[in-house]
Nucleic acid binder design. Structure first.
Lengths: 105, 105
DNA sequence: TCTATTGTTCGATAATCATAGTACAATAAA
DNA sequence: TTTATTGTACTATGATTATCGAACAATAGA
């Protein structure tokens, strides 16, 4: 397995964050992590194939939005809330609030 | 000239807004509009071809982020700040604040 | 050790996109 | 009316992307 790249907090790019969150599936993943705290990849109910989940997870991780931790055969995903708050104060919460207003939970 | 489509405020999609703002050029356009109030297409200094500016303007307009008004041979662009504030309170300012923190103006 | 679980990697595909150049349309100005 | 200005329409292109299936790797459990 390849090592899991996570950008340093200072290297998180606004454009990358916005792009990563512009996909409905990824936004859903992030929202569920916000609610659940952390979750294994497979425990997030999504209407897409396994390999597609991997793709979206990588996009979110490389943008600096989530952290991936290995636990047995699982990959535990968690939101980098503190890092994002440090880098872009208020941004994540503002986006998630907009999401919550838009989607029926 | 084709009619200029502008989505109703209620039809503005979060994903579309985030996607439109995930491009550095478009983010720059929006930031300059925030500062200038409104601007003609050609008055926004950008390192890209005319036809590419048109492309980005359309993306922003169809996402509901800017309004385009015809004035002579010019197209005047303006931010739909009030509409965005109505639809997604705090979102635009939060993104622009993050942009301002990141880029040296 | 064998099997099941979990997720990645690889390859493929169809779609979208950012970019540019050229030609054109609309309007203003001379 | 002719010319200049401003931006769009159209076409093309190379790059990226979201998606999937099949094969593989790593680990846990029996």
């Amino acid at each position: 397995m390849k090592p899991l790249f996570h950008p340093d907090t200072a290297d998180i790019q606004l454009s990358s964050v916005l792009y990563a969150l512009s996909d409905p599936v990824r936004l859903m993943i992030v929202f569920k992590l916000k609610q659940a705290g952390e979750r294994a990849c497979g425990d997030i109910e999504l209407p897409i194939a396994k390999s597609t989940v991997t793709h979206h997870s990588r996009t979110l991780r490389e943008a600096g939005i989530i952290r991936t931790r290995v636990h047995g055969t699982q990959r535990i995903l968690s939101l980098r809330e503190d890092d994002l708050e440090t880098r872009f104060p208020g941004l994540l919460n503002s986006i998630l609030a907009s999401y919550e207003d838009t989607v029926e939970i």
